[in-house]
Every structure is written in structure tokens, then in C-alpha cells.
Design a protein around this nucleic acid. Structure first.
Lengths: 131, 131
DNA sequence: TTGGTGCTTGACGTTAACGTCAACGTCAAT
DNA sequence: ATTGACGTTGACGTTAACGTCAAGCACCAA
């Protein structure tokens, strides 16, 4: 038996506060199919799992992923447990494509960061000369 | 004397083709103050330097930087040659902030990439079992 | 029972980053 | 001299990702 550990849940307001976004954002993500919180009557109830998905999504957003891309990735996380060979194969192909894309972006980011640090170093040298 | 090496120049169409964007994008970037190509009469003339700036900008766009952020960074690259201590100090402060921000984004990207690779590995294991 | 707080669903507004015409100039080639 | 190919400036359209109301329900406290 999986122990019925009373896992924590959140209301929209609580979770928005926790994640540092507005309730509007959470409702928007739901409308776009990125999360599907349960309902307690009329009200949304976010579980630990919902929160985890949202954190992944918000992390993706920070380095330029669109909501559509975020949704695809979190959905792939779920599909990885499949038992159908056909499913797993196409999923794997897509995962590799996504990984390659992310690596390109990481490279772009790394180069930009490197240049920014170079410019900063140059500033420091000039300041030392003037000091 | 700096030799008057006839450096290559581009028209909008040529440069757009070269950079893989539309001419509309280049004109938009100009309207937003990210580049300021010279004019040959009525027509835009992009220099090697303009092209370099644009490549930096497009690279930034790929990992989620806004046009405003891109503009600030390329502008900072220019300001680094200043001789005014006051200027250099504030510039340096900003550069360090930007670098810190980029490092956070890089970290987010790295974690996401790592997870995607984990899921892919999981797929491969399951496929091996089913094989 | 009257607030106040927090939830709900619309529905319209906004911003960024372009796309997509329209209307016009210009220069080389037919 | 007219046809294209390429350039120019408006100006309006579009998409994504929310912001910002409005109107209404639910429950708790004074």
C-alpha cells in the first residue's frame, strides 16, 4: 500500500505567492493545458506534483522557452513511463532533438556570458590604470 | 595610419539573407536603436561592425534575451573604452549584474538539459527491456 | 447582516517582436 | 519606355503571454 500521506496542497493564491507569479499566470497556464489542478467544488487545488510541473515550466521560461515548448517537455516527462515500443521510440527521437536544441542555446548563452566577463575584465584594467 | 581597407558592406536584403532573418527584422532593430547603419543616399549600408552587433543580438535572442536587454549589452560593449572613471565604475557594476543574471539562466538551462537527458536515458532502458 | 477576503469565470487591454500590405522611388535590362 | 528587382517609409495586423477589470459566489468575523 502506498501510505495515504496527506500531501500538502495549495490554493491558487498560495501557490502563486510560493512561485512568485500572479494567479492570472497560473490560470493562464491551465487554460493552455500546462497544468490541470484538481477541484474542490469550484476551487482549484494544486498538488505537490502540479507545483513540480510549474517549477519546471517557470525555469524553462527564464531562458527563453515558449509555453508550447514547456508543455511539450513536461508532457514528455510523463510519457516516458509508456510500455509501447512505438511510443517510446518517437518520444526518444523528440527528446534527442530537444536536447540538441538546448545545447545550442546553452552554447549561445555561454559565449555571451564569456564576452560579458571579458568586457568587465577590460573595465577593471582601465580602472586600475586610472587609479 | 589605419589603412583604408575597403571593408565589405551589405544592403538590407543581403544582410538579412546572411543572418537568416527578414529585412523587416533589421529595420525593426534599427527603429529600436539596436543598430544604426549608414546611408548611401536613401538606402541602408551595413558595415562589418553592424553585422557583428546584429550577430550578438540574434545570439542573445536565441536564449531568451529581450531586445532591450540585447541593446543594453551591445551598448555596454561600446562604453567599455571610456576614459571616465565614473562611467567605468557604473558600467562595471552593471556588467557584473548582467553576468550574474546570465549565470542563473545558464544554470536553469543546464538543469533542464540534464533532466531531458535523464528522461531520454530512461526511455532507452525501457526500450532495451522491451527489445 | 454586513463586511472583508479569496475564490470563480468571462472579457477586453497591453506589450514585444515582428508580419504584411500599400504606395512610392530607382536603377539596370529588355 | 516599360518591366522587374530591390530599396524606402508608413501604417495596420498578428501572436504570445499575460494584465486588468467586472460581476458574482462562499465563508468567516464583527
Amino acid at each position: 500500500m502506498t501510505a495515504a500521506a496527506k500531501e500538502r496542497v495549495w490554493t491558487v493564491g498560495e501557490l502563486a505567492e510560493d512561485l512568485g507569479v500572479t494567479t492570472r499566470t497560473l490560470r493562464h497556464y491551465e487554460a493552455e493545458g500546462l497544468v490541470t489542478p484538481r477541484r474542490s467544488g469550484h476551487n482549484r487545488v494544486y498538488t505537490v506534483r502540479d507545483r513540480a510541473r510549474l517549477r519546471l515550466i517557470l525555469r524553462g521560461r527564464r531562458f527563453g522557452m515558449s509555453l508550447a515548448e514547456c508543455r511539450e517537455i513536461v508532457d514528455m516527462y510523463d510519457g516516458a513511463g509508456s510500455s509501447e515500443q512505438r511510443q517510446l521510440t518517437t518520444l526518444l527521437g523528440r527528446l534527442d532533438e530537444v536536447a540538441a536544441d538546448l545545447e545550442r542555446r546553452a552554447d549561445d548563452l555561454r559565449r555571451t556570458l564569456s564576452e560579458v566577463n571579458d568586457v568587465a575584465a577590460q573595465c577593471r584594467r582601465r580602472l586600475a590604470e586610472l587609479g
